[in-house]
Write a protein that binds this DNA or RNA. Structure first.
Lengths: 222, 222, 222, 222
DNA sequence: GATGAATGAGGGTTCATTCAT
DNA sequence: AATGAATGAACCCTCATTCAT
């Protein structure tokens, strides 16, 4: 449930007042515009208009364009992470559903999940934006370092540990292996999809995930 | 090739050809400025000044900023590829020097080579630039798809085939395996170095390459 | 007129927070900022912040920027005049101390006193501000006409009368002569000091005052 | 199309091309607007419009507002000086016309001339502008130091020397005396006219000049 | 009466682009 | 072909001022 929307709609009747909702509206608009246009191209006027506030209100809240930008990136990162955390049922890697799968199938499924999360339109645009600007905005480094949601890797580590304990695989360092698997799938996915610029077909995704799963199963076979 | 002298005399007699030297100077300047500033931030004035020509000359040669940009990216890509092809001795993976190494050592060495090539300052800036703009300039897609020099992958494939034929490894599909290994190393390298924004220390590089090599040796052990 | 703080009393007889202190704080801050920045450059935000009050409070007290400006100038003029009146011991021209001096020395000493008072930092800034804005704010005309404290001239007139009565000089119209002497010293002092923008050295001041004194002694010799 | 070219803009005779005239038009407009509005209030847009050029053309010629301002002040100073030098017949102090006058009358006439030149509308506005801004633009110091045209003082010095040589006065240092006389008249004139903000009546001027002349005649009588 | 939030107008400056020479 | 001068549309940001609490 999106409380944001409810609050923001409520502002339509109230003309004025100390509205923390405006801050969020500005942030949302900023995310939209920055992701679409990039940092330089994005105009503060446009963001203000998209947020339904005056330009100066933007400046009152965020000081200048750069701070607005950084706040927008940070907020979107949070949103992505929260979204991810809020919908665990969409990634039931370690749940009962995958318990029955053998290691190869589970890894493949997880790979698809990674691709789905990573190549999500907004997440991709955010990634491109961060990569584009990290050289000029050092504050983006944390955002850049957190390229993929840590949860994805952690979940995979748990999955690997599960199969290790079941005696199916031999994974002495699940965390490291999870990082490798993720990196492999991510890189090939980004590469093939032009960093999220074009959608990946199912066969393309399979052509990435299946061999990756095979590689890891082979490497960690008993 | 016409010399400067020949060009200089042609004022009235015949339509002297476009000055290739100036064109190249403009391209060089454009690469420098675009890589440093990004597409939007880069000013045509600045590029023209850096090239030592008038602004209008830039427009005479390239029509508009976008075409200049695309030409600059394409040129830089060529340059990187040519540079790579011209200095194969710097990447002697498949040469005699590595013949004696065992598979793990050879893979690790190759990984370091990949990181060195990929995280080169100019190459990194180009990569960030392409990623930043590919969504808005579809013509950049080829440049984006060619993220890493194909030669790096091909060379690794040859290396794997070498070890396969020597009986040390079992690599039924060297091309695919080479792509996987490259993707893994590349992704972790880019990630750790913030897409080339900060240099990688030797231990960091080793922490990427050695486990990657180990993974592949394990996966393809006989 | 809303400038009377008699209005400030409660609208319903309720003696809620009297704020003459705030009003004065605003005025002080306004003087500081206006003198430093000039009328246009001075921001109401800055003044409010310097006064430690909200921007709207400034408007509640003074209505708009122009009235605040005029009140600030008027207040500073008062302050300068009061300061001067409160410290007559610093200008003991007509006192016993100068009684023994001959006319030339007394005039010279008075000249120095004039320069000191006129080129005081705040007084100079106020003068420049008034001159700068008098064309656009007719209400400043009184402030402009009162360029130099009347007391300075009056005191000099008394001094001249003193020397006249002592038979040392022949000054039939001391008031007019005092005005002339003051004008002469003032103009040369302002000119040399770039209207108070740079300090005058002692020799420079002497080079103004001594010849001026000499001129007047000669003109009014018996 | 020809029609486009013809219609494009009424360039008033000179069609197009490298127009040094535009620079002058901008300067003229800048003087007008700066004198009328002051530095801060003056808008570059307004100046550009008044000059009939685009805003950017202003920036191409002068770089930024401050440099435009300084150039305008300098130009206006030159103009005033040139004007003065070009019309010596309007100030025939030392010519035959005043040869016959006695010293008092000649000094009085010169005083009136000084007031006329100094309280000229443009000159006054320039003076107020320079005084207003000299604290924030150190480059204005020369302009501030040259408050009154040097020629005025020099001419008076010549006049004094003339009367000295004729035996009518005793002026051992004409240059210094000329400076004093000018300063006295200037200061009283500026003061009475609110720094040129309001015109001086003839009697007012006479009330300044006649006593000043009298003072100097008395001081330098034989 | 005092405040924080909000505003519309306008500030100086820079941009990619074109014209006439 | 190459240039210097010119343009109009933005750009980011700040201002004096007002509204609702």
């Amino acid at each position: 449930m999106r409380t944001d929307n409810a609050v923001r709609r409520g502002t339509r009747g109230r003309p004025h007042g100390p509205q923390p909702a405006k801050r969020q509206a500005i942030l949302d608009a900023a995310v939209t515009v920055f992701l679409r246009e990039g940092y330089q191209r994005a105009g503060v006027d446009v963001i203000a208009a998209a947020a339904g506030v005056s330009k100066q209100t933007v400046y009152n809240h965020f000081g200048d364009k750069e701070r607005l930008f950084l706040a927008a990136v940070e907020g979107e990162r949070q949103r992505v992470a929260d979204d991810f955390a809020a919908h665990p049922h969409e990634a039931p890697d370690a749940s009962e559903a995958t318990d029955d799968l053998d290691a190869a199938a589970a890894l493949t499924a997880h790979g698809h999940r990674v691709l789905r999360v990573l190549l999500d339109e907004r997440a991709s645009a955010l990634r491109r934006l961060v990569i584009a600007e990290v050289a000029r905005h050092p504050s983006l480094r944390p955002a850049c370092a957190d390229g993929e949601p840590r949860q994805l890797v952690d979940r995979l580590a748990a999955l690997l540990r599960h199969h290790h304990e079941r005696g199916e695989l031999d994974v002495p360092d699940p965390a490291s292996a999870a990082g490798q698997f993720t990196a492999l799938v991510v890189q090939q996915g980004l590469h093939r999809s032009m960093y999220g610029t074009r959608a990946l077909t199912e066969p393309e995704a399979e052509a990435i995930c299946a061999p990756a799963a095979d590689l890891f199963v082979r490497a960690h076979r008993r």
